[in-house]
């Protein structure tokens, strides 16, 4: 129901930010975020950043999987 794509904030100007989405620079509304900053990775839906992406959790699934599989064996 809600296509969203990740992007990186390059520069901010008021409610909008220039965001790099896999090489495409788009103007994205960032008024839904608390204190957005340049370099932040954000999730973009309907032209709005709806959340900051937590890069620390990029491999979360892999970690969970590894732990669980190890438990079995």
């Amino acid at each position: 129901m809600c296509i969203a794509v990740p992007g990186k904030i390059i520069s901010i100007s008021g409610y909008y930010a220039a965001v790099d989405i896999m090489g495409v620079m788009a103007s994205v509304f960032i008024g839904l975020l608390e204190d957005p900053k340049e370099e932040d990775m954000v999730l973009i839906h309907a032209g709005c950043a709806i959340q900051r992406i937590d890069q620390e959790h990029f491999s979360y699934l892999e970690k969970v999987f590894t732990v669980m599989q190890e438990e079995v064996h």
Partner: peptide
């Protein structure tokens, strides 16, 4: 191209 892929992903 990556940009073409990206824009189309953005637009669904």
């Amino acid at each position: 191209r990556k940009e073409v892929q990206a824009l189309n992903e953005l637009l669904g």
